[in-house]
Amino acid sequence: MALYGYTIGDVDVNSTLAGEQFQVYRFLIPVPPVSARIISPELVGTVTVNVTGNPDLEGLGTNYTNGRVSAVNEPNFGGTTVRVSSIDRPFPSPAPVAVTQNRVPATLNRFGSETGADFGRDFSVATNPPAVLYNLGANADASDGPVGTSLYKLGLSGTSANTIQIIDATPTAAETAGTTPTNPGIYADGLAVDNLTPGRTRAFGSDFSNVDGDGAQLHKVDLLTGQLSAPIQLRDSETNQLLAANKDSGLAFTRVPFPGNTDTSPQRLIALLENGFLYEITGYEDELNASGLSLGSATGTNGAGFATATLIGVVNLPNALSGSTDYEGFTIVNEGING
């Protein structure tokens, strides 16, 4: 098996067509030990989003039931939430269709202007919890409104199919309306759910931006309550200092145990920054295994509240380094060596 990352650019590549046309790229994830190198991506296909505001496809996740990739558009206050499925190889022909997610309750609006997404089990269902697509709505810049993050779930089957709901025990009217986050002051725009060892707190949100003033970090995510933990600071493996990145990010685990997947490699946690920089995160295990939403044990390898980020490559995505095109969504698929 081989690991491939997927991402989507945020620039409309054909303004003559209705909506916005976003390009999907695929690239090989390096296998450690490896020194950072330039990684060449492959154009997989183009997705059209034609909804209110034409927001970008920033949230990507790999479905553990079938191994296929779905994307969610970024929050756009009062706008439509859409999910686009099967955007990995083999790319559908005709191009995949954006499916509208119906708001439950009808007054629901997603919070923020940034997003992350990943598949996981719906822990509000006690027996045989179904797969849902979790979605972060986040805002890092106080000039755009309150800094914070809210968690949502997009239903995929049964009576909840094509719905979106906020995850909070007792959401306020403002939280439901999308004007206030359920996690004030905590920002995360990348989401990775550990489906290899499922659990309601076996998920991370990532924040590589310093717009909110607190540097690069992870947060544990409670998939049942929607709570995000206090920060787990990221240290640069080269300097052992706090990582200075200041970019939007996507986050993904490497192990997605869908049927027929024979991958038995160790679990890895990878982040893609909007400029194509690819980081592997290690030393997070104490945080993920800790009970509740604490920072983890004080006896961990890196001490409580810290993990290490190592640059493993730079994906040579079109116009990424110049900043004229951003690549914020990220997920990983286990594929055959020959694709």
Score class of each variant (00 low, 15 high):
F27V: 13
L278D: 02
N54T: 13
A271I: 15
F330W: 02
F27T: 12
T225P: 02
S85N: 15
P266H: 00
L191R: 05
Y25C: 07
D212P: 04
P96Q: 12
S265D: 14
T239S: 14
T65M: 01
Q233H: 01
P129L: 05
F208C: 08
F77V: 01
G116T: 04
M1Y: 06
D207H: 06
P129H: 08
F22C: 05
T310R: 11
S86R: 15
Q217V: 13
G199W: 05
R235V: 03
G61E: 05
A138R: 04
S297V: 15
S93H: 03
F27D: 13
E285S: 04
P90R: 04
L311M: 03
L43Y: 15
S70K: 09
A117Q: 04
D189V: 11
T163L: 09
N316D: 15
A309G: 01
G61K: 04
G339E: 12
N66S: 01
T62S: 10
I29F: 07
G336P: 12
E280R: 09
S324H: 10
T163A: 10
N338Y: 13
L321I: 14
D141Q: 11
P181W: 00
L191H: 10
N240C: 04
D248S: 06
A36L: 00
A271T: 15
T127H: 05
V97T: 15
Y152N: 02
G45A: 11
A320W: 12
F277M: 13
L295F: 03
N334Y: 02
G19S: 06
D286L: 10
I29K: 11
R255G: 06
R68V: 07
E274I: 09
S297N: 13
E114K: 06
V315M: 02
T100S: 08
S157F: 05
G190C: 07
L196D: 13
P146G: 03
L251G: 10
I166V: 12
T201R: 14
V84E: 09
A309S: 02
L218R: 10
L196Q: 13
T62P: 06
I270F: 03
Y6S: 02
S229A: 03
D141H: 11
R202F: 09
Q227F: 10
L269I: 11
